[in-house]
Design a protein around this nucleic acid. Structure first.
Lengths: 132, 132
DNA sequence: CATATATTTGCATCAATGTTGCAAAAGTAA
DNA sequence: TTACTTTTGCAACATTGATGCAAATATATG
């Protein structure tokens, strides 16, 4: 865990390790409020900046679930300095409200005659395995 | 224009028509700030609720461009009561910052062995035709 | 056309979230 | 241990989303 942070050029402070541990406790993407309730006392701004630096360093990525709410999930390998490289789609179960990173779905290829598509994200909705 | 609103069961008030006209002036998706600067005086809450009712009625749809900013664009046919049916991807040009609804890109099909995918959205990034 | 009804607007007020500046604290390297 | 850089915690502020309510407006009905 410390290694992970240092490999991204982030100092391994107790607070950051605590937040990282919370991510590790959950299988799927989590909301800010989940992190907040897992933490005992914490400074709101510090947490906000922690998440921000995690995103910038490529430790976690942000997922826009519906129109409004957002969640966060640990990155896989290969994410660095805001250049997130995710070979998975994000799936939101409309029953249990869980948000999954699905690397079992093959990413399609997109082509446009005149536009150059350098990257794209896919957010899917539906019903997950256990709710099915 | 009045017909459009009434077909969605929205009353055709002057303010709503004014906002709709602004959408008509722009080819691509626009930000809230663009609407605000086009309007002379306006009430912030009323505009907020106008956009909200447009989205709920299927007149416009919301586009999440990057992690943060959002834009709005007129819906095509077939969007009703929050059941937006868009057969296009959203493309954000990293040069000119314009956001396009690209119906020239074929929507791929997604499959998962155990999850039921009912709908999905695609946000792409890259360089648009005129910036290319 | 006038009126009754339902919706919309404008205003006040509030909540949640994101942001900045700065001094103290803590981590890192020499 | 010291010097330097980053992070934290606090205050203060900006932006955005949301609700309640009375006045204004739109629509339907007689």
């Amino acid at each position: 865990m410390e290694k992970l942070l240092k490999s991204k050029n982030l100092r391994a402070t107790p607070f950051r390790l605590e937040v990282l541990t919370i991510f590790g406790k959950y299988e799927n993407a989590i909301e800010m409020s989940t992190i907040e309730s897992e933490l005992g006392n914490f400074d709101r701004i510090t947490l906000y900046r922690t998440i921000k630096s995690f995103i910038q360093a490529g430790v976690v990525h942000e997922i826009h679930v519906n129109g409004d709410s957002k969640k966060f999930a640990l990155c896989a390998e290969g994410c660095e300095n805001l250049h997130h490289q995710h070979d998975h789609i994000h799936f939101h179960c409309t029953v249990c409200q869980e948000t999954f990173c699905l690397d079992t779905v093959e990413m399609p290829s997109l082509n446009h005659p005149t536009f150059t598509i350098s990257s794209f994200d896919i957010q899917a909705q539906g019903i997950c395995e256990s709710c099915n």
